[in-house]
Design a protein around this nucleic acid. Sequence first.
DNA 1: ATCTAGTTGCGACTCATTCGCAATAGACAT
DNA 2: ATGTCTATTGCGAATGAGTCGCAACTAGAT
Lengths: 149, 149
Amino acid sequence: MLKRYDLLNAVEAQGVRLTAQRRALIETIQEAKSHLDAASLLELARKRDPKIDRATVYRTLELLKRLGMIDELDLMHLNGEKHYYEVKTQKDHLHLACFNCGEIEEFTSPTFERLKREIADKNEFDIKVMRLEVGGLCKRCAARKPVLQ
Amino acid sequence: MLKRYDLLNAVEAQGVRLTAQRRALIETIQEAKSHLDAASLLELARKRDPKIDRATVYRTLELLKRLGMIDELDLMHLNGEKHYYEVKTQKDHLHLACFNCGEIEEFTSPTFERLKREIADKNEFDIKVMRLEVGGLCKRCAARKPVLQ
DNA sequence: ATCTAGTTGCGACTCATTCGCAATAGACAT
DNA sequence: ATGTCTATTGCGAATGAGTCGCAACTAGAT
């Protein structure tokens, strides 16, 4: 498991007002076992604090994104246009999404790190976010379903 | 300029019915100078054939995606949640999106190709689509605006 | 020229996300 | 502890991209 930042402390350290809703949302994201979309995040966070509104979820996600504490993923839009969120890890990583079974695999590699440095150097580009998503067939599905139309 | 496939011929070769609307849409995508979203594509294609509907645009994009002839991009959602489309090029490439000025730079590199092979090999993943997007500040904006909050 | 299955236009719909505004509540000063 | 002030919240309505069902149309085969 890749090391993740401690959101709650990090947010507090930024001098951001900590409301009950934000606390519930941040703890939920932090402890999530899988990538959450806004609706699932809302549902889970309501177990901690039942009085949270949809709008607050979006506003909090916006805040965390702005602070660079979470990443927003599309995961190849396997299930509609919603976004998914994850706590930023120390190392960038990419996501492999299986079009057949929907499984998401994560992947890190020195080559990825190297590519990142290359982009920054050759283009003199100041990288804030890097989102690499791959769609295709995972090992099992490729074996089972050799041809995709 | 990266070499692009000739869409119209390629589509015909697939035995797909060529309607006036598809022709107009495909020619428009092929000749586009920049990345088009569905709405701009519709607007431009109507100059060739004024009788095209929004739904047909989406259905045609879906078709071309399925045939593997175009790629769908998010371009870091710089301007809302819409998607952008481009004709597939011979080589995969990535997009650098400037959060400040909105400019999109393209980038190819042997390291990117290598990373792709690595993913396919190490994970035994059958890659269909690869979408690598980078957000940050381009050379000029980084110089002009050294600190982003 | 005819036939027919694939394609289209239309309008209504869905779904994710955003907004305006009045009510509320952190957190700092007292 | 209490009051104050401003950021944050909930609510409900709005937006915007994309999708759907269905009747009308048409490309291309015969």
